[in-house]
């Protein structure tokens, strides 16, 4: 149901005041709303019809039946309320995705006492409805929604509702979890301009960057902890403790620098950086990320990529 806009705004404001966000939300009487559904009201109407039959046909048993139906509606309130009461919703993790993709949030539902709570429904217009059946102490729910922009993707205030077991009443709560997902910029190809501060010339020819195991490089003095297998035995005969030093050859470190993309808008620059990151990753080259006021040392691998993407996603947020 939609209210007129000003009323809706006030209602939303009231709900967010009344139901503040948190990493963990326990549903109790101040958070659960419960009203009869349309189906429940229909039941009430039906009971009235039965009572009318009772009156007009002077049928004693129909009086009993009519009141039974009314009372069943009353009893159903307790049974439905019970599904949500005491339920603990806990924020777990949220994903990091490219802007425009679907991001998922995972929540943990738990309850201090094991109880069958029937199918619960998580509703929001972003994901329609997601069901979770809770039987026992805990269960995990994954919600996913599309992202449109780079940046913080908070889990919106959603509606958790239960109509179980008879659909006569609906109990619900509006839950706002303190859980953010992030979307990094969509990669867009742009040329990097050389940046003045970057050292040029011979440094860029130095292809070995770190100790490795592939190629022999030089001899060096033994240090405590060096492997016996790398000992240079001919030198040992001359009473010198020398070990062989190996290196891995690598391409030059590439710094992906914010300032290497002059003349572009902020989001465009971030998109370009994301594109270069992806390229480096594909070519298995190490790269570093340099953003205004923030720097990530060159490295490679999936985790490094994620870290850099996260940095792009979080760009502009207060840290």
């Amino acid at each position: 149901m939609r209210w007129p806009a000003p009323l809706q705004r006030r209602l939303d404001a009231w709900v967010s005041r009344r139901l503040p966000p948190g990493r963990q939300v326990t549903l109790n009487q101040s958070r659960i709303f419960i009203v009869p559904t349309r189906q429940g009201l229909l039941m009430l109407g039906l009971a009235l019809v039965v009572l009318l039959v009772a009156i007009n046909f002077e049928s004693s048993l129909n009086y009993a039946l009519g009141f039974w139906l009314v009372a069943m509606l009353w009893a159903a309130v307790h049974l439905t309320y019970r599904n949500l009461s005491g339920l603990v919703v806990q924020a777990e993790t949220a994903g990091l995705v490219e802007a425009g993709e679907n991001v998922s949030y995972s929540l943990m539902l738990s309850s201090p006492r094991s109880r069958y709570r029937g199918p619960l429904e998580f509703r929001h217009e972003d994901w329609g409805q997601v069901g979770a059946e809770m039987d026992g102490r805990d269960t995990q729910v994954t919600l996913s929604r599309p992202t449109s922009q780079r940046g913080r993707q908070p889990l919106p205030r959603f509606r958790l509702e239960s109509r179980y077991p008879f659909g006569l009443v609906v109990a619900w709560s509006h839950i706002k979890m303190d859980l953010d997902a992030w979307a990094y910029p969509k990669p867009v190809e742009q040329r990097l301009q050389p940046v003045g501060t970057e050292p040029e010339g011979d440094v860029s020819n130095d292809h070995f960057v770190q100790a490795g195991t592939e190629d022999f490089h030089s001899l060096r003095e033994y240090q405590a902890g060096d492997s016996v297998h790398r000992m240079h035995w001919p030198s040992f005969s001359r009473d010198e403790l020398v070990v062989k030093h190996f290196v891995d050859y690598q391409a030059a470190d590439q710094w992906l620098d914010w300032h290497a993309l002059p003349g572009l808008a902020v989001e465009m620059r971030l998109s370009a950086l994301a594109w270069h990151m992806l390229r480096c990753q594909q070519q298995d080259r190490p790269f570093g990320l340099r953003l205004p006021g923030y720097e990530i040392e060159p490295d490679k691998g999936q985790r490094h990529l994620e870290r850099c993407r996260r940095a792009l996603a979080e760009f502009g947020e207060l840290r």
Binding site: L52, I55, N56, F57, E58, S60, Y63, A64, G66, F67, W68, V70, A71, M72, W74, A75, A76, H78, L79, P165, F166
Partner: peptide, 22 residues
């Protein structure tokens, strides 16, 4: 649900006025 509804049913049955046919 049915058992829980019985007390109200009994109360309604006992105390609801028996009206003449409408």
């Amino acid at each position: 649900l049915m058992v829980a509804a019985v007390p109200i049913m009994i109360a309604g049955f006992l105390f609801f006025p028996r009206l003449p046919p409408l």
